[in-house]
């Protein structure tokens, strides 16, 4: 599903170069639930962005669903993301002037279609947001915002869900709920990669990777339950 071959990513800052990824090679199979852990600045989020076609590696090759992402044109890569990849972020990143329902429907803009409202409503209902669809992000709790972000990520029925600290701003109850939703997506055949600090996430994962200084320091696999 995801293959990184000797992938490196170097950011140039005014203080010099920062090597966020340092020759990482990794393969994640379709249907896997993978957790990536590591201290701040270890390159966790960078792996996610590179795998999602959002950040071109400085060197190396990244293949997702059999496609070499960075040989594609930006337009084709955007289309690929719209078809195959869902993102969930720690800060939710909802559009502040749209309602919960409109935020969930946002991927329809990229798909250039007016359909999908029913699916967005179904997802919000499923995530317990029935009575909150017309509320704007500022009127929602952190847990509710993340559920809207989940609905947005899943609207186009992606094959791959990339979650960057999805529970980083949530209380334990909401953390459990969000992890349950991710697990549910996984059970439906989806591939999940979660970057997190939360130990709780490891209960759901079959594979845990630990990153340090842009390299994979250790890897743990758990048998399927």
């Amino acid at each position: 599903m995801i293959r990184l071959e000797n992938a490196s990513k170097v950011y140039k800052t005014h203080r010099g170069e920062v090597r966020a990824l340092d020759g990482v090679s990794l393969e994640i199979e379709e249907g896997e639930f993978t957790v990536i852990r590591g201290p701040s600045g270890s390159g966790k989020s960078t792996i996610l962005m590179c795998a999602g076609g959002m950040a071109r590696p400085t060197s190396g090759k990244i293949t997702v669903c059999g496609k070499d992402l960075y040989t594609m044109s930006p337009g084709d890569r955007a289309h690929f993301r719209a078809q195959n990849v869902g993102f969930v972020f720690q800060m939710f990143h909802l559009v502040p002037y749209l309602t919960a329902l409109e935020n969930a429907m946002l991927p329809l803009l990229a798909a250039n279609t007016n359909g999908g409202r029913g699916e967005a409503e179904r997802l919000l209902d499923h995530f317990g947001m029935s009575g909150r669809k017309s509320h704007k992000p500022a009127e929602l709790s952190a847990g509710e915002r993340q559920r809207v972000a989940m609905a947005r990520a899943l609207l186009n029925k992606p094959r791959l869900l990339l979650a960057d600290e999805p529970t980083g701003n949530l209380d334990p109850e909401n953390t459990r709920q969000i992890m349950d939703y991710l697990a549910e997506f996984h059970r439906g055949g989806g591939t999940v990669v979660v970057v997190t600090h939360a130990n709780q996430a490891e209960e759901y994962a079959r594979r845990v990777l630990v990153l340090r200084d842009g390299r994979i320091e250790s890897e743990t696999r758990r048998p399927a339950q």
Binding site: G75, A82, H93, L109, N156
Partner: peptide
């Protein structure tokens, strides 16, 4: 900036 990032993440092209 964030909104633009989200639109890019969900697959909106630069044209849109």
């Amino acid at each position: 900036r964030v909104e633009i990032g989200v639109l890019r993440a969900i697959g909106s092209g630069t044209g849109r």
